[in-house]
Computed example of a mutant assay.
Amino acid sequence: MQFETPLVPGKLVKRYKRFLSDIELEDGSVVVAHCTNSGSMKTCIEEGAPVYLSRAKDPKRKTKFTWEMIQINDSWVGVNTGLPNQIVFEAIRDGIIPGLDKYKHVKREVKFEDSRFDVYAENEQEQCFIEVKNVTMKVGDAALFPDAITTRGQKHLKTLIEVKKSGLRAVMFYVIQRQDISYFGPAKEIDPAYALALKKAMDNGVEVFAYMAKVSPTGIELSNKLDLQM
C-alpha cells in the first residue's frame, strides 16, 4: 500500500482523549491530528519522537490531519489502525500471501450473521472470512495483542468459530506494523480472556496469520510471516 500524497513530518507533543494528538510541525506550529488507535498504544508513545501525518481528504473534517506513524528506536511503527484492512485486502487480491493466494474474488466489509468482517474471499472451491487486527505493542522480542481489553475482539473470534462450523474457511490475520520483533503472541497479562478465546478459536479450526509489515513514509507493505507462540 502506497500513500497517495506525501506525508507531513512532525514531532509528537502528546496524545490525549484517546483519539487526539498534538503534533509540532517543522515550522514550529502545533496541529491537532486524529489518532485512529483506540487502544493504550503501549510501547509506541514517546513524546518528542518524529511522526508522520496524512492530510484529511474531507475539507469539513474538524481534524485536518491523521497520525500515521511514529519513530521508535530508529524504526517506524504504524499507528493507523484503519490501514491493515486495506493492506491485507490488497495482498490477498494480488495473490502475494502464501495460503491466501488462490482467490479470484475479494471484497471488503462483508457481513456474517451479526458481525462484519474486514475481508471476504472466494474461489470455485471455498469461501473465506478474514478478520484483521493491527498490532503495535512490543514486549521483549514479541509483538503482543491486544494492548487493552477488547470484548469486541473476543466477539470476532467467537463468530469466526461459527464461520468455520458452517463449513466456510475462517482466518484471523494480525498485521504487526513494526520491524523490531521476532514472533507474535496474545497479551495474556493484559487480556487473558482474549488469549483463551484465541486458543479456543484455533482449536475449532480458525487459522491464524501473523505478518510483520515494513512501515515507511512512502508506504506500508507486508514482509515476513511470524511464528505464533501461545
Results as ranks from 00 to 15, higher is better:
Lys111Gly: 12
Lys111Asn: 13
Phe112Lys: 02
Phe112Trp: 13
Phe112Tyr: 14
Phe112Thr: 03
Phe112Cys: 03
Glu113Arg: 14
Glu113Ser: 09
Glu113Val: 07
Asp114Val: 11
Asp114Pro: 04
Arg116Leu: 10
Arg116Trp: 05
Phe117Tyr: 06
Phe117Ala: 05
Asp118Glu: 08
Asp118Trp: 03
Val119Thr: 05
Val119Ile: 14
Val119Lys: 01
Val119Phe: 01
Val119Asn: 01
Val119Pro: 01
Tyr120Trp: 09
Tyr120Pro: 02
Tyr120Ile: 06
Tyr120Met: 06
Ala121Glu: 04
Ala121Asp: 04
Ala121Cys: 07
Ala121Val: 04
Glu122Gln: 07
Glu122Leu: 03
Glu122Pro: 03
Asn123Trp: 08
Asn123Tyr: 09
Asn123Gln: 09
Glu124Tyr: 11
Glu124Leu: 11
Glu124Ile: 11
Glu124Gln: 11
Glu124Gly: 08
Gln125Tyr: 12
Gln125Trp: 11
Glu126Gly: 06
Glu126Leu: 05
Gln127Val: 07
Gln127Arg: 12
Cys128Met: 09
Cys128Thr: 14
Phe129Pro: 07
Phe129Gln: 08
Phe129Leu: 10
Phe129Thr: 08
Phe129Asn: 08
Ile130Thr: 06
Ile130Cys: 04
Ile130Gln: 02
Ile130Asn: 02
Glu131Ser: 11
Glu131Asn: 07
Glu131Asp: 13
Glu131Lys: 01
Glu131Ala: 05
Glu131Arg: 00
Val132Ala: 01
Val132Ile: 13
Val132Ser: 00
Val132Thr: 07
Lys133Arg: 15
Lys133Val: 10
Lys133Gly: 02
Asn134Met: 07
Asn134Tyr: 00
Asn134Glu: 03
Asn134Leu: 04
Asn134Asp: 10
Val135Thr: 09
Val135Tyr: 00
Val135Gly: 00
Val135Lys: 00
Thr136Asp: 04
Thr136Glu: 11
Thr136Ser: 15
Thr136Gln: 15
Met137Lys: 15
Met137Gly: 01
Met137Asp: 06
Lys138Ala: 15
Lys138Leu: 13
Lys138Val: 15
Val139Gly: 05
Gly140Ser: 11
Gly140Trp: 06
Gly140Pro: 05
Asp141Gly: 12
Asp141Ile: 09
Asp141Val: 10
Asp141Met: 13
Asp141Ala: 14
